[in-house]
Simulated assay, not measured.
Amino acid sequence: MTARLDGKSVVVTGATSGIGWTTAVRLHADGACVVATGRDVDRGRALVEALGDRAHFVAADLTDPAAADEVFGACVASFGAVDGVVNNAALDHTGPLGAVSMDDVRKVFEVNAFGTIAMTRAAVLAMPRDGGSIVNVTSRLAYAGVPEMAVYAASKGAVHAFTLSAAVELAPRGIRVNEVAPGMTATPLYDAWLSGSEDPERTARDVVSRIPLGRVAVPEDVAAAVVYLLSDDAAYVTGTTINVDGGYTAQ
């Protein structure tokens, strides 16, 4: 019985922690050759050492104009082709609108929106003429207003709009473009946010009380949706959002 992604080469950005790390592990388990990218060299090397064969790490800062071409060049050199991309790298931001600086706004958009666009543009040039799959990791916040998250939400909303247009434009080439929109997910970033609240236990209960399925997501939930969209099972799926949020945005 063949694995779901046998023979596919996939680039994963932001792969050195959280959802990106778990997604890289799941893709590899499903047979993919994985090129993991991120800024944390030690964690990147640890990831590929844990995965073993069919894994390669490229240290990359997506704000560097040369990063995207370097990453895809490494994928082609290592595995012969680029079949899939997971645009997961993101910079978080929380804070009142009146206090945020425009420099911080630009930093968030530089990674979340411009980084995704740059990687997609480079992927289009690197992918074969007979198709491929791009999965953008957005957020429930692109669809639901939450106080003090406006800048982050706007950057993810930009990626959502980009996903729709890219899906239509690239369809004639057989390149599918979709997105996965996670809800609150138990990652190191979530843990740090909880620990910084006045009453972490109460905050955790409040978060869960707003989710119909009664728990926060785990990275494996998101990775499973990504694998589906990259696989041939989703051959007729493009321009679509999978909300992995326990029903949060259905309310």
Rank of each mutant, 00 (worst) to 15 (best):
K8R: 15
K8P: 08
K8M: 08
V10G: 07
V11C: 09
V11G: 11
V12L: 06
V12P: 07
T13C: 10
G14A: 07
G14N: 01
T16N: 10
T16M: 04
S17G: 05
G18W: 10
G20C: 08
W21G: 05
T22W: 02
T22I: 02
T22G: 03
T23H: 07
A24M: 12
A24N: 09
L27M: 05
A29T: 01
A29H: 01
D30V: 00
D30S: 02
G31I: 06
T37Y: 04
G38T: 10
R39Y: 03
R43K: 11
G44P: 12
G44D: 09
V48D: 03
D53L: 05
D53V: 06
R54C: 01
A55E: 07
H56G: 00
A60W: 13
T63V: 06
A66D: 14
A67T: 04
D69F: 03
G73A: 09
C75L: 12
C75D: 04
C75A: 15
F79Y: 12
G80K: 13
A81R: 15
V82L: 11
V82C: 12
G84T: 08
V85E: 05
N87C: 07
N87A: 13
N88Q: 04
H93T: 00
H93R: 06
T94C: 10
A99G: 02
D104C: 01
V105C: 08
R106M: 02
R106K: 03
K107F: 00
F109V: 05
E110S: 12
N112K: 08
A113H: 13
T116R: 06
I117R: 08
A123I: 13
L125D: 15
L125T: 15
A126P: 13
M127V: 14
R129Y: 08
D130V: 09
G131T: 12
V135Y: 12
N136A: 11
V137L: 14
T138W: 03
S139I: 08
R140G: 00
L141Y: 09
Y143M: 11
P147F: 08
M149Q: 12
M149E: 10
A150F: 01
Y152T: 07
Y152A: 09
A153S: 10
S155M: 03
G157P: 09
V159M: 10
A161M: 03
T163G: 00
A166D: 13
A167M: 07
V168Y: 07
E169D: 14
E169N: 08
L170P: 15
L170E: 15
L170V: 14
R173C: 09
E179W: 04
G183M: 13
M184Y: 15
L189C: 00
L189P: 00
D191K: 10
S195A: 15
G196A: 07
E198F: 13
E198S: 15
R202N: 13
R205L: 09
R205N: 10
V207S: 05
R210S: 10
I211G: 10
P212A: 09
G214P: 00
G214K: 02
A217D: 11
A217W: 03
V218Y: 00
V218C: 01
P219Y: 01
P219S: 01
D221E: 06
A224V: 00
V226L: 02
L229V: 06
L229G: 04
L230K: 04
T240V: 08
I242V: 14
A250E: 11
Q251M: 12
Q251D: 07
